[in-house]
Every structure is written in C-alpha cells, then in structure tokens.
Amino acid sequence: MTAVLTRDGVDVVLDELFADRIRRAAPLGEHYARLWRRLELASSGGKRLRPRLLLDTHRAFGAPSPEDATTAAAAFELLHTALLLHDDVIDRDLSRRGRPTVSAEFAADASRSGLSSHTASAWGDASAILGGDLLLSAAHALVAQVRPAVRAQLADIIDESLFRAAAGEHDDIAFGLGTAQATPERVVRMMENKTAGYSFAAPLRAGAALAGTGEQASTELEQVGVALGVLYQLRDDLLGVFGDTNRTGKSTTGDLRQGKRTLLVAFAEGRPAWSAVRHLWGDSQLDESGAERLRTALVTTGARDATVDLIDRMRRATITTIGETTLPSGLRQQLVALTNTLAERES
C-alpha cells in the first residue's frame, strides 16, 4: 500500500491497522475482538489535529517522503487515542465525542449480564487501560516502519512527549486530590507537559524531522507548539464548564464534579462567591443544579472573564512568537490561522 500525504491517507493506514488487529484478535476471544472494534471506533470521529500538524509541517519543508509522513501521522493519532482512553479511566468520564467511552461500554456489557456495579466498573476500567496500552504499542509499531534515517529521532520525540504527558497527568491528579499545591505557575506547567508536548510540539517537530530540517526549526516548533498547547487547554477548560455539550460532545459537569484544578478555578479561589459554593466543587454526586451554582460563581467572581482575557492575550503573544521564527512563510500562516481557531473554537 502506498499512502498519500493527506488526512485520508492517515485513515487508510489506521483502517488497515485495525482490520489486521481485529482479524488477529478474533481467535483469542470474542471480547478481545470486541475491544479492538471499540478501539477502532474510539479513534474515529476526531479532528485529526495531530496528524494535520505533522503533515502540514512536513509539506511546508519540502515533503521528501510522503509515505513515511502518513505513517508517522497515523502513529500520533493512535498515541492521542491511547492517552484519552487512560484519561477517561482516571477522570471517570463516561462519554467522549458524543458517545460512551470504551470503559463505559464494557461496564455496560457487564451490567447487562447481571454483574455488580463494582465488578462492571472494574471490567470497564481494565478494558480501557489495556486498550490504551495496545494503542501505544501500535503507535510504536507504525514508527518502526519509517525509514531508518529518522526512525530513532521519531521514537525519541514520542518517548519524550509521553514522558512529559505522564508528568502532567500526575500533576493534574495531585492537584485534584490535594496532594500538591496548584499554584497558577504549576497549573500552566501541567498544561505544557500534559497537553502541549504530545499534542502540538511533538507532531510539529516530527514533521520537521521527517523533512530533514535542522535543530533551529525543531527548537522554534517546540516553542510554538507549547504556546499552542496551553492556548488549546485554556479554551478546553472553559468549554468544559461553559461549552455547548451538543457541540463539544463532553459533559459540562464532569470537570466540576471531579474538582479539576484549572486556571478558571484558580482565578475564583478566595473570592466570596466561590467560597460560598466551593463545597460543591469535587462532589462526586454533583447534579446539574449544583453545577449551575458553581458556574454562576465563576461568572460572579470574574473568573470566566479573566480566563477569556488570558486566552486573547496568549493568542496575540503566540502570533507574535510565530512571526519571529524562521519557519517557511506558508507554515507560519497556517500556524497563525490555527492559533485563532484554537482561541475561538466552540468544540
């Protein structure tokens, strides 16, 4: 198969990978084949942001090997889906992209067969964790298919991004549990590690590496990627509380129910209106009425406006950073357009 340098080409690579895994899984157990079918479904329907970043960067620098770029782009999409699966278990999320998460689906299977809620939850969590592990392995298997000259460099980029993502996730959990102090500086660092590294900086750098660029381009793309990632996460946190569920495909009570420590919450801390309802934040039984009280407090304290203002300031700063790089002009234009999209997106 000769893949082309488009997002459709990425879909071809993923379709072939999942078809092969589902075929191989079938003799090993019906529920194992079902896991792979659900992993395929979980990887569909996304924005394909990371593959696009890699492919656009690769093309901007000359695109010497389209097939390698398509394969690597598919690997980054698998990496993203894998981390979402793990994140859903950690955050106890039941929906993703407008449909049940893998963990929720397997838990529902167990419940329908008459198992207790505890057993059903354990089955769902175990299935999703194993699914995430399998997709991480599959991502590395795809990277192993690119030409030897850049294979090790790509593997290092992925390894570093996963290392940082785990650090960010660990911080996020610590903030939520209260085992670490969530200062604004630490929250921003968590965003840089958990989201910005693997979602933006890594695919940008991978596209440049596949094109054979030097260290300066990699350094500039790292800087731009981190800025884009923090901007993305700030907007995501805002949508996670005030977004339209029909457009985002995510609950607007989940972050509040989990007591997720975001800059939105940090801006509200210590304000009387927030202190009056803070006992509801992180309540596992939080209902929509309680969530609405928390949202009202976030507005009253000025936290929502402060977050919106920060997003705009970061948007302008990121555009300035992009303009100061030596990246190809076409790529700079694409990155500026992406910056504006991330700052204004509704889903």
Score class of each variant (00 low, 15 high):
residue 203 P to W: 03
residue 10 V to F: 07
residue 316 R to I: 03
residue 93 D to P: 03
residue 341 T to D: 12
residue 88 D to W: 11
residue 180 A to P: 07
residue 152 A to Y: 03
residue 237 D to C: 02
residue 310 L to N: 07
residue 121 S to T: 15
residue 172 D to Y: 04
residue 211 A to L: 06
residue 140 H to M: 11
residue 99 R to C: 08
residue 19 A to Y: 04
residue 307 T to W: 01
residue 49 L to T: 11
residue 329 S to K: 07
residue 195 T to C: 04
residue 112 R to L: 12
residue 217 A to C: 05
residue 164 R to F: 09
residue 51 P to A: 01
residue 143 V to S: 05
residue 172 D to K: 05
residue 45 G to E: 12
residue 269 E to G: 05
residue 134 L to E: 12
residue 24 R to G: 12
residue 41 L to Y: 11
residue 195 T to S: 13
residue 41 L to F: 10
residue 49 L to W: 08
residue 134 L to I: 02
residue 91 D to S: 03
residue 126 A to V: 09
residue 235 R to M: 05
residue 298 L to T: 02
residue 212 G to W: 05
residue 119 T to G: 00
residue 73 A to P: 12
residue 42 A to H: 15
residue 328 P to F: 06
residue 312 D to L: 09
residue 84 L to E: 04
residue 6 T to F: 10
residue 188 V to I: 15
residue 221 L to T: 10
residue 26 A to Y: 09
residue 306 A to I: 01
residue 40 E to W: 09
residue 331 L to G: 02
residue 17 L to W: 14
residue 251 S to C: 01
residue 192 E to V: 01
residue 330 G to A: 14
residue 193 N to H: 14
residue 254 G to E: 14
residue 231 L to D: 12
residue 78 L to R: 00
residue 146 V to I: 08
residue 192 E to A: 09
residue 219 T to S: 14
residue 320 T to L: 12
residue 62 G to Q: 08
residue 124 G to M: 02
residue 40 E to Y: 08
residue 304 R to L: 05
residue 52 R to C: 02
residue 202 A to E: 15
residue 120 A to W: 06
residue 51 P to V: 00
residue 332 R to I: 02
residue 295 R to M: 08
residue 102 V to H: 01
residue 87 D to Y: 11
residue 149 A to R: 10
residue 128 A to W: 08
residue 122 A to T: 08
residue 287 D to F: 00
residue 205 R to H: 13
residue 66 P to I: 01
residue 88 D to I: 09
residue 67 E to T: 13
residue 248 T to I: 05
residue 133 D to Y: 07
residue 93 D to C: 03
residue 35 L to I: 01
residue 86 H to N: 09
residue 222 E to R: 15
residue 79 L to Y: 10
residue 52 R to E: 13
residue 14 L to W: 06
